[in-house]
Computed example of a mutant assay.
Amino acid sequence: MAILSLQYDLLNQDDKDIFLIDEPEVNLGSTYIESTIVPMIKNLAKSKKIIVIATHDANIATRTYPVTSILKKSSNNIYDTFQGSMFTNELININDKRVLKWDEESENYLEGGSIAFKERGTLYGTSN
């Protein structure tokens, strides 16, 4: 049902200019996300639609080539919001202008950290 609903909404809303998509990866397999959902999102972007996606899926977060990324971090009930881009490799705190590296934060939050990322590479048979 999730597959049909999401696919219908992405394909049949030509009259909409803004799409708010919350965790489209829930209940969907990685293959379907990569082969169907990511291309649909890219097509919406090409047609000048505004797409806001909340996701923990690395394929969606990186392979759709987002213009802007937003990262919300919390520590001791203090919340920081960072905004930036994979193209500049920066995430800038909107309050105090601290800068984080987009690639490092993405590896931590989307891939489970460098150890998990490298372990998957080993499991898949790559040397890096």
Rank of each mutant, 00 (worst) to 15 (best):
M1W: 12
I3A: 14
I3K: 13
L4F: 10
L4N: 11
L4Q: 08
S5A: 15
Q7T: 15
Q7N: 12
Y8P: 05
Y8K: 09
N12H: 12
N12S: 13
Q13F: 04
D14T: 02
I18M: 12
I18E: 08
F19W: 06
P24A: 04
P24Y: 03
V26E: 07
N27G: 04
L28R: 03
T31V: 12
I33C: 03
E34K: 15
I37M: 01
I41N: 01
N43E: 10
L44E: 01
A45S: 14
S47Q: 14
K49F: 00
I50C: 11
I51M: 06
I51S: 06
A54N: 15
A54F: 13
A54S: 15
A58N: 14
N59H: 11
I60K: 03
Y65E: 15
S69G: 05
K73N: 10
K73V: 07
K73M: 07
I78H: 09
Y79D: 15
T81I: 15
T88N: 10
N89V: 02
I92V: 14
N93L: 07
I94P: 03
R98V: 10
R98Y: 08
L100F: 08
K101E: 13
W102R: 04
E104A: 07
E105L: 06
E105H: 06
S106D: 01
N108H: 11
I115W: 08
F117W: 00
F117N: 11
K118G: 10
E119K: 11
G121S: 11
G121A: 10
L123Y: 08
G125K: 04
G125N: 02
T126W: 11
S127D: 13
